[in-house]
Design a protein around this nucleic acid. Structure first.
Length: 691
DNA sequence: GCCTCTGGATTTTTT
DNA sequence: ATCCAGAGGC
């Protein structure tokens, strides 16, 4: 890009995650990752290339110019937990019962509208069903709650940016002039609001370049709109739409497999994937008895690749459809001493104790943030219960003020609502606490503020007394460290910057690339990443494709694309695993191999060479230096018809045996209603009976 | 107001 | 299985 003589600061590139932004910086300018992470999204005074996510870009724009549309510079960004709280309150206030409409459903209606830039009024004009009628009322109230609190949600970051650019031509002109070139990565996953913003910004120089692959569109549930690609062709006939067909990543075998899979989608445009790389190894497929054995197969194979084939742990990733699947993999890693890095799952900034602490920090920045206030007003318990909060909320609403304003009046001896003396006292104390935090937020450093919160609220002691107290304390400490890091970082920033930062980081952003560990990650999160070795687990009907996509053709195609995304993350080796039985919701059930397995051309596939070597002998299993028993090929220890006894399932009869890797897979029919099970001899607690 | 118990739902994916 | 909301006793 720089050889075209365009100064970097005249270019903006928008990516899907901060991590992708960082990588782009690194690639374009050869900056070290640390340098670029310092620059990331915070490029000062127009210096340097702007690379960030849509949300970070918009947030920055709104902090700078949002006052033009009446937005407070210190607006808070509500995540979905905060949003649900706000929706619940809105539903309460407009008298919608949670049984009529789930808050989650209401929110999804609101979010869907916002991402199409449909405001409350617009929604009111279009509503055409009873549910939409209700959502409209909730939407209206929800917007009031957020604006009263000077808060925006994720969708607002986009929609308000759009509004601002539309309503303030001067502001729009600044950005339109500045950015000679605008580039959007992962274009297939943008929503209407994002595209409209890009269109506005590119309106002057008309240099919009988008990179995307319709076959990797996997975020329609988040309102991504593949129609943007069609719109782009129409709106920018000369614009560049880059759809990479050459894949510099994977072996031809992996590409062919992925191609075979995705070709089964009806609703797509043909394309050929090619690579300069060789054919590589076949795709390995295996079935474990249940999810823990599936996990063990993965971990054993990973260990073998490290031991025998010179791979590093960091070259490998295990990918799954739903976060819950990570549990079994994690356990297997722990058991076998394999280092792993779990991405996401229980996202750090979403943890209860972190959300609570964050709520206090937000209150320090803005005591009128009602959602944060309601969250912690009685955490730790300070005798301000649900009833009182309800009264305060009603009073606030009637006065058109924030809850804090009501508390302030009570503390000042002017209660606008009847409160008992006892409550008034508790509220006054809370009032003093918040006043103290506001003062500290203005005068002290971020870390001092955090310390003050922990001390003055008694939160530290409270967290310790909860279950998992030690872990909670540890998280609080880690949070404090991250604040310290933030301050130490070049450029630093104030409380508002820090709060913004933690709202906009995603889990992939926090991945550690230095540590030598296997990555455990969902297929969605894996988009845009690559690994030498990829293990995809849970290749079963109802998992991938997910059970919720079963009765909808469109969603099924998206599942297939998701599978495609996973497969194309692999550079050299791809493993597809499934389990014969899988535990879910307490119970257990048999499972059916995923239809996607059948779409991979057979000739590319081979059974996984399973390494059933028992776990390394430990002190207790190998006493007196005796060598571990070696399995011989001589005689099968069990055959069909043998009577056996299982430690858990009791007596049974062997139905079938089958060599499997270095092990013997035994199918046993058990008595007493335990049914037929397939077991691996070396692991099942199985004894031969008689003879 | 606070604590414990119970019944019911439950997340699929996340900036 | 686990988490949450609502009920009921203190």
């Amino acid at each position: 890009m720089d050889d075209h003589g365009v100064p970097p600061h005249r270019i903006a590139a928008v990516t899907f995650t901060n991590k992708a932004a960082r990588e782009m910086q690194t690639r374009l300018f050869g900056l070290s990752p640390e340098d670029s992470s310092a620059l990331l999204g915070w490029s000062r005074r127009g210096q340097g290339l702007t690379v960030s996510t849509f949300h970070a870009f918009c947030s920055r724009l709104l902090r700078h110019d949002g006052d033009r549309i009446g937005l407070d510079r210190n607006f808070a960004i509500y995540d979905d937990v905060d949003q649900i709280a706000a929706v619940k309150r809105a539903m309460d206030e407009v008298g919608v019962d949670a049984k009529t409409l789930k808050p989650r459903a209401a929110l999804s209606g609101i979010s869907g509208a916002k991402s199409k830039l449909i405001g409350v009024e617009g929604f009111g004009l279009r509503r055409e069903s009873y549910v939409e009628e209700i959502i409209h009322r909730v939407y209206e109230r929800y917007e009031d709650i957020l604006s009263q609190a000077s808060a925006v949600d994720f969708d607002d970051l986009l929609m308000k940016t759009y509004d601002l650019l539309r309503r303030s031509p001067e502001v729009a002109a600044i950005y339109q002039d500045r950015y000679l070139h605008l580039m959007i990565d992962e274009f297939q996953d943008t929503n209407v609001a994002q595209y409209e913003i890009a269109k506005l910004i590119a309106d002057r120089h008309r240099n919009l370049c988008v990179v995307g692959d319709p076959d990797q569109s996997i975020y329609s549930w988040r309102n991504a709109d593949i129609g943007n690609i069609l719109s782009f062709r129409k709106d920018f006939p000369d614009g560049r739409l880059i759809a990479l067909e050459e894949n510099y990543r994977s072996t031809q075998t992996i590409l062919d497999a992925a191609q075979g899979l995705i070709a089964a989608n009806r609703n797509r445009v043909e394309k050929d994937l090619f690579t300069e790389k060789g054919r590589g190894k076949p795709i390995a497929v295996a079935e474990g008895y249940n999810e823990s054995e599936e996990a063990r197969l993965v971990v054993n194979e990973a260990a073998r690749l490290v031991r025998d084939e010179g791979f590093m742990q960091r070259d490998m990733a295990v990918m799954y459809r739903v976060n819950a699947q990570s549990r079994a993999i994690e356990e297997a890693c722990v058991r076998h001493g394999v280092p792993y890095q779990l991405v996401g799952s229980t996202q750090f900034y979403r943890r209860q104790e972190i959300k609570d602490l964050t709520a206090y920090l937000r209150l320090g920045a803005n005591p009128h943030d009602d959602v944060s206030l309601a969250r912690v007003v009685n955490v730790p318990a300070r005798r301000i219960g649900a009833r009182t909060v309800e009264d305060l909320t009603r009073a606030a609403r009637e006065a058109g003020s924030s809850i804090y304003t009501v508390i302030d009046a009570i503390a000042g001896g002017q209660p606008p609502v009847a409160v008992r003396a006892r409550q008034a006292r508790s509220l006054s104390e809370f009032h003093d606490l918040i006043e103290g935090l506001s003062k500290a937020a203005r005068e002290k450093s971020l870390v001092d503020l955090i310390d003050l919160v922990l001390e003055r609220t008694g939160y530290e002691r409270y967290a310790e007394e909860q279950d998992r107290g030690e872990e909670r304390l540890e998280n609080l400490r880690e949070f404090r460290n991250s604040a310290q890091d933030f301050l130490d970082m070049e450029g630093g920033g104030d409380l508002t910057d820090f709060l913004e930062r933690i709202s906009l980081v995603s889990d992939v952003d926090t991945m550690n690339e230095e540590s030598d560990a296997i990555t455990l990650i969902t297929l969605h999160q894996a988009k845009g990443l690559e690994y030498r070795v990829v293990f995809m687990v849970g290749m079963e009907e109802n998992i991938l494709p997910h059970v919720r996509s079963m009765d909808d053709e469109e969603q099924m195609e998206e599942e297939r694309r998701l599978c495609y995304v996973g497969m194309t993350r692999a550079k050299e080796r791809l493993y597809l695993l499934r389990a014969f039985r899988r535990a879910f919701r307490g119970g257990q059930g048999p499972s059916v191999p995923s239809r996607f397995l059948g779409d991979v051309p057979r000739e590319l596939v081979t059974p996984m060479d399973v390494d059933f070597a028992p776990p390394r002998p430990t002190a207790k299993s190998a006493p007196s230096g005796e060598p571990a028993p070696v399995r011989t090929e001589a005689e099968p220890p069990l055959a069909a018809g043998d009577k056996v006894e299982h430690a858990k399932f009791g007596p049974g009869i062997v139905v079938q045996t089958k060599p499997s890797g270095g092990d013997l897979q035994v199918t046993v029919a058990f008595k007493d209603g335990h049914g037929v099970k397939r077991l691996l001899l070396s692991f099942a607690p199985l004894e031969k009976v008689g003879a």
